[in-house]
Computed example of a mutant assay.
Amino acid sequence: MVIGRKIKRKHPDIPLIFLTGFDLPEYRLQAKKMNADGFLNKSMKPDDLRDALQTIIKTGSSPIESEITILTKQEKRVLVLLSKGYTQNYIASELSVSRRTINNHVQAIHEKMQVNTSIEAISEGIKLGIISLLDN
């Protein structure tokens, strides 16, 4: 994604298209934020890929469909820190908020992700691309 931002900054007229096997809502959102011209799944049929690329060439871009991000930026930070094994007390200290605030964030994460435990939330966070296993 960092390379994509640099390309778009230096050459805004060059179409930026993501072709990925990781078709995650969080990745789509990031591509959309950097004004990418397309976000395509590499498992799509060759004819569909050709058609999508032709559409982007003709129109200049293809709308990037993305699910509404269900977690706030702060909730994502809390979830990532939980995935690293940190306690709520440590996270509160790290983010300069009260333990009660962190507990409220955790409860909101559980409700929004429709899970009962932080382990389930972390698992969903991985599936959505919010948590990267490489960063832990």
Rank of each mutant, 00 (worst) to 15 (best):
M1S: 13
G4S: 06
G4H: 08
R5M: 12
K6M: 14
K6S: 11
K6E: 15
K6Y: 14
K8G: 06
K8D: 08
R9E: 15
R9Y: 01
K10W: 07
H11C: 07
P12M: 11
P12A: 10
L16K: 02
L16V: 12
I17W: 02
L19G: 06
T20M: 11
T20Q: 02
G21S: 11
F22T: 08
D23F: 09
P25K: 03
R28F: 09
Q30N: 05
Q30M: 11
Q30L: 10
Q30C: 01
A31N: 07
K33Q: 12
K33M: 13
M34N: 05
A36M: 07
A36Y: 02
G38Q: 09
F39A: 03
F39E: 01
N41E: 09
S43T: 09
S43Q: 08
M44P: 00
M44I: 12
K45P: 00
K45M: 14
P46Y: 10
D47A: 13
D47N: 12
D48N: 07
A52H: 05
A52T: 04
L53Y: 11
L53K: 04
Q54F: 14
I56C: 06
I57R: 10
I57E: 11
K58T: 09
T59D: 09
T59S: 05
T59N: 11
G60D: 03
G60T: 12
G60E: 14
S62D: 07
P63I: 10
P63F: 10
P63R: 13
P63L: 08
I64Y: 02
I64H: 03
I68S: 02
I68G: 00
I70G: 00
I70P: 01
T72D: 08
K73R: 10
K73G: 05
K73L: 13
Q74H: 11
Q74C: 01
E75S: 11
E75Y: 02
E75L: 08
R77I: 13
V78F: 07
V78M: 15
L79S: 00
L81Y: 05
L82C: 05
S83V: 03
K84E: 13
G85C: 04
G85W: 08
T87A: 06
T87D: 10
T87V: 10
T87L: 10
Q88V: 10
Y90T: 07
I91Y: 03
I91T: 09
I91E: 05
A92V: 01
A92C: 06
E94G: 00
L95E: 05
S96A: 15
V97H: 05
S98V: 07
S98H: 09
R99E: 14
R99I: 08
R99H: 11
R100Q: 13
R100I: 15
T101H: 06
N103D: 14
H105R: 08
H105C: 15
V106Q: 06
V106S: 04
Q107I: 14
Q107C: 03
Q107F: 08
I109A: 06
I109N: 00
H110W: 06
E111V: 03
K112G: 04
M113N: 00
Q114Y: 04
Q114P: 02
Q114F: 07
Q114C: 11
V115H: 02
V115N: 02
N116Y: 08
T117P: 00
T117G: 00
T117W: 02
S118P: 00
S118W: 03
E120G: 01
A121R: 02
I126L: 09
K127H: 10
G129W: 09
G129N: 10
I130T: 07
I130C: 06
I131W: 04
S132V: 05
S132K: 05
L134K: 09
D135R: 13
N136A: 09
N136R: 14
